[in-house]
Simulated scan of single mutants.
Amino acid sequence: MHTLPARSIALVLGTRPELVKLAELIRVLGPAARVVHTGQHYDDELSGDFLAELGLPEPEYLTGVGGRPRAVQVAAALGALDELFAADPPLAVVVQGDTNAALAGALAANARDLPLVHVEAGLRSHDRAMPEEHNRVLIDRLADVLCAATPDNRALLLAEGLPEDRIAVTGNPVVEAVRDHLPPAGERARLLARHGLAADGYLLATVHRPENTDDPAALAAVLTGLADLAAELPVVLPLHPRTRARIAAAGLTGLLDGLTVLPPAGYGTFLALARHAAALVSDSGGVQEETTVLGRPLVVVRRSTERPEALADFAELVAPGPAIAAAVRRRLAEGPAGLRRLSALPSPYGDGTASDRIADLTAHLARERAVPGSGHAMAA
């Protein structure tokens, strides 16, 4: 992207999954990338260490956003972004997904009449109880370029009346993120040995969504399901700080006793653990995508999902409680043949070139914006 002025593309993000999915796009954009971190989930465990691991430039950080209610987060980030864009307007703004940070970035771009690119457009859970559903619908309405990961996402956007010429099926950058950051086989083997794990001989779980952590009964049901499985196979649980706090507040710490609890894992470490797990249990949207690249079975503990593509072969949607262990046992019963079948399937999220496609679309949009007198004259 050498034809774009330095720091002319603002990528607004605020969470660890956004860092992962935008990392390759940031590298492709090179000096043109201007990374703005709202601090929605910023801490050293969840974001800070990722910058170094992913090889990303130090972002511009906003203050006073993290750890606040949703409306306050969006308002605070919007105000700070508006000041940044007023003082130094980019040629285009890129947001990814459906976070509060992404919504704030989209609103700030709209307020300053800046072109907006939405990565991962067109996801829909059709669950109005999910805050992210409202965020993603609003962002799609505001975006000038809608980067749909799959043809189904494109179809959903068209069904909502969004113009066809604003939509491009790009694939999802999660595919290249997994391929780029999965450690080599030898390193993975050493990691498993350090934790006393055997390949295909343990389960990997993550729990962080409010629907599973804010309700003590739901949280207890999830942890009880994992503890039930731990009687048969080791259950590895990298524990999100928010989840750990909720477990302590609900008096459920004893349910962790039979689990292998780890601190939040770096991205490469998590991928290595996921690659060799007999099955995964998670409420994460990103994990639903990553398991399709890694060829692993997943039990999704949620009431709805915006990623139905994963459900066709790789995942099953269940409620907290006994259904978790039952679904995992069904997958385990498929044995090595089941794992071989999944490993042979292509990911529904693309071929690993999404970031290049998104960079080209963003650059085209920025060049259209860079007119004489705009303050961002294009390089010759």
Rank of each mutant, 00 (worst) to 15 (best):
Ala32Leu: 08
Leu4Thr: 08
Glu176Tyr: 00
Leu262Trp: 10
Asn110Met: 12
Asp356Ala: 14
Leu19Ile: 05
Ala92Met: 05
Gly161Glu: 05
Leu158Ser: 00
Val93Gly: 15
Ser347Ala: 09
Pro89His: 01
Ala274Thr: 07
Ala231His: 15
Ala312Lys: 05
His126Phe: 13
Ala148Glu: 04
Glu306Met: 03
Val371Met: 14
Leu256Met: 09
Leu191Asp: 05
Leu138Ser: 11
Leu19Met: 12
Tyr267Arg: 07
Gln96Asp: 09
Ala198Thr: 14
Asp152Trp: 07
Ala87Gln: 13
Thr305Pro: 06
Ile247Tyr: 06
Lys21Phe: 04
Met378Asp: 09
Leu192Ala: 04
Gly39Lys: 06
Val65Pro: 11
Asp165Pro: 06
Gly39Gln: 10
Gln73Trp: 11
Gly186Phe: 09
Leu233Asn: 09
Ala106Ile: 11
His134Asp: 08
Ala274Asn: 02
Arg141Ile: 06
Arg124His: 10
Leu339Trp: 10
Val300His: 01
Leu116Gly: 13
Ala248Gln: 13
Pro89Ile: 07
Gly171Pro: 14
Leu280Asn: 06
Glu160Tyr: 05
Arg330Cys: 05
Ser347Lys: 07
Asn172Asp: 15
Ala129Asp: 14
Thr170Gln: 09
Thr243Pro: 14
Arg369Glu: 15
Val281Gly: 03
Val287Asn: 01
Leu103Met: 07
Gly67Asn: 04
Arg369Leu: 09
Ile358His: 07
Ala121Trp: 09
Gly350Gln: 05
Leu46Val: 08
Glu334Asp: 13
Ala279Cys: 10
Leu29Val: 13
Asp98Gly: 05
Pro115Thr: 02
Arg330Trp: 00
Ala220Gln: 13
Ser304Glu: 02
Ala272Pro: 02
Leu219Met: 14
Glu83Phe: 08
Leu103Ile: 10
Asp283Arg: 02
Tyr349Asn: 03
Ile247Met: 10
Arg357Tyr: 03
Ile167Asp: 11
Ser374Asn: 11
Pro31Cys: 14
Gly268Asn: 02
Thr292Phe: 00
Ala23Met: 04
Leu365Lys: 08
Arg303Ser: 14
Ala155Ile: 01
Thr3His: 14
Ala101Asn: 03
Leu229Ile: 08
Glu18Leu: 01
Gly196Tyr: 01
Asp43Gly: 06
Leu182Ser: 03
Glu187Tyr: 11
Gly285Leu: 02
